[in-house]
């Protein structure tokens, strides 16, 4: 037991000199990784679209004249925001799965759409309420109905204002979609876990996966930013 031993044994907080990097494992599993990426993109896009629809419906319900609609939307939003997404996914797939037969893919899209729908509801609602009251009054004074005032005057302006937080929510969705791997949907994270448990190349694989998600999120935020610029030309 001499000083020399300290160099042979790795220090406890984690620098492991015996782990040799081997990025070739990524090349071996490239097709599987691409398939996982495709699944993640598919699920994310579907959930973003459905979630946005739910968000618009929710925001309209929350700002509507009818108390029943407002209460319904409130319950929906609070329920989703105060439970973890993982629990929601497990509940929909395994819990509700006791009554209806849901495929993991359908359950995932449902769960992710419901989830993002609640947050998008709040974003759009805040956007609607940030539009100056005078806009609605001008619309009404011209004889427009509630619906016309909302869809012709208020919503178009609100959408432009909420593009940054909306983009943020979309990016969150892409990242949160990794949770569907627990119900064995073959998304990027599931494929990665599979590779890691087979090859034990935790560092290389997870680094690559992080890069994949980064590229996806960045691409999305970049396109939203250019959309913002295009719409800003009317300002």
């Amino acid at each position: 037991m001499g000083v020399g031993d300290a160099f042979r044994r790795p220090p406890a907080f984690g620098v492991n000199a015996m782990y040799k990097l081997d990025f070739a494992v990524l090349a071996d599993y490239w097709p599987a990784l691409l398939a996982g990426l495709e699944m993640t993109v598919k699920v994310s896009v579907l959930s973003i679209c459905l979630g946005t629809l739910m968000g618009v419906a929710g925001a309209l319900a929350k700002t509507s004249r009818f108390r029943a609609l407002r209460a319904l939307a409130f319950t929906y939003v609070e329920w989703i925001r105060n439970t973890p997404l993982l629990i929601q996914i497990l509940f929909i797939y395994f819990g509700l799965g006791v009554f209806f037969s849901l495929s993991p893919l359908v359950a995932s899209v449902f769960a992710l759409s419901f989830f993002s729908g609640a947050y998008i509801t709040e974003i759009i609602r805040a956007g609607i309420q940030s539009i100056h009251r005078g806009q609605r009054e001008a619309a009404f004074s011209l004889g427009m109905t509630d619906g016309q005032a909302m869809f012709l005057v208020v919503l178009p302006q609100a959408i432009r204002r909420i593009l940054p937080p909306l983009a943020g929510q979309f990016i969150t969705l892409i990242k949160d979609s990794s949770l569907i791997s627990v119900i064995a949907v073959s998304d990027l994270t599931y494929v990665a876990k599979n590779i890691v448990t087979t090859t034990f190349r935790a560092f290389e694989v997870w680094l690559a996966i992080a890069v994949f998600y980064f590229v996806l999120s960045f691409a999305l935020s970049w396109s939203v930013r250019s959309l913002e610029h295009r719409l800003a030309q009317s300002d």
């Binding site: 005078g134 009404f140 004889g143």
Partner: peptide, 20 residues
């Protein structure tokens, strides 16, 4: 209400034009 609003036109202090 809807009828009256088509009979009247209003001009506001803050103009309230639709910016978009």
């Amino acid at each position: 209400l809807h009828q009256v609003r088509q009979l009247t036109g209003m001009v506001f202090q803050q103009f309230n034009l639709f910016p978009h």
